[in-house]
Design a protein around this nucleic acid. Structure first.
Lengths: 182, 182
DNA sequence: ATCAGCATGTAAGGCGTTACATGATTCA
DNA sequence: TGAATCATGTAACGCCTTACATGCTGAT
């Protein structure tokens, strides 16, 4: 099958802008990307090793103030792999929401339980939306940088969907509270 | 850690309504649930075996017209496990959209590539939205059945978010096409 | 007769998370 | 001095997907 690990593409994407250490990569992923993709050290370091063997990246061991660092750099072959991936049509888009699963089976408990679960979800989304909005506002100020349009578009995707979630939360709570459910 | 397999909860939820075979369970998951959760045979059958050992379900081998069938039934202990899960506050909600990942790194290729990727995404969402709307309309006709309010709420979540996606797609394409990007 | 659907399961592999292990530096 | 952050990695485990393997039934 040899399906490419998607984490490879995240790393190549990040390295296409600047050389980074594994630690840096983790931080970048935990930032704006975390809304639609995750990564962990146990994921990133083995991927870096594998990609180096494949010639997609090269490493550079340095020592900054006695502390050891391994910085990675994208190769031409790595850059090609990134572009090929961008041009592939197929993309897996997965949504796995335990909150919706619980709601779907909400009938096994009282309506209050479902209302509470929606409230917990709502609070989380409100928090995340605030973060996204701040990030987005910071980007708006520099849309003349070509890459920023892409960051801005992904951020606006998040904002729009989160706003839709919140509207739904209000409606859902209302529906569950009225019409005298058990 | 002993984290519960979520597929167990899906199965318990389905069995709380009716006795089902592994095959039936797969079909149910592929239906309305598939929007926010997935399951496969290689996932379901081992889970059924494990849950039987834990006493959450009981099995019943029958033979319908010469064909063998194993139907599962939820036990009181299984029903309790389902309710406990519903009452747990924590819920993992994950979104993993490769389309957004590609868009985020879109700067590595021409804008046309990103526009095309958005179009592919858009078409898929339009298809899925149609299916969801039909399902939702069928449910609206029988909202007096207590469980249907839950199915209807999860469906409306999908519809609202998909509609938000489509609005975003239109805006995103417009942004990428104007202002003379490379 | 053939194909779609019903029905059950296993095996291998892939991917990812969590926890563990280690140690340096910087700042309060 | 102690905590947070920088920095790299491994090991175990868990879970899921895909492919494989098998065979019956009902409809055309």
């Amino acid at each position: 099958m040899a399906r490419e690990r998607k984490i490879d593409m995240v790393i190549l994407g990040l390295l296409s802008h600047e050389d980074l250490t594994g630690y840096d990569i983790k931080k970048r992923i935990d930032g704006a990307i975390s809304f639609f993709w995750k990564g962990s050290f146990g994921n990133i370091y083995p991927a870096l090793k594998g990609m180096e063997n494949q010639g997609l990246i090269t490493k550079n061991d340095t020592s900054v103030g006695g502390r050891e660092k391994t910085t990675y750099h994208i190769t031409e072959s790595g850059s090609d792999a990134l572009k090929d991936w961008l041009k592939e049509e197929q993309a897996s888009n997965e949504l796995k929401y335990e909150t919706l699963l619980k709601l779907f089976f909400g009938g096994a408990e009282s309506r209050g339980v479902s209302v509470h679960n929606i409230e917990v979800f709502e609070e989380q989304i409100q928090k995340d939306l605030k973060v996204l909005k701040k990030y987005s506002e910071a980007l708006e100020k520099s849309l003349d940088v070509e890459d920023h349009i892409y960051y801005s578009l992904t951020a606006s995707f998040g904002i729009k969907t989160y706003e839709a979630y919140l509207k739904w939360c209000a409606k859902a709570k209302k529906m569950l509270k009225q019409r005298g459910g058990k």
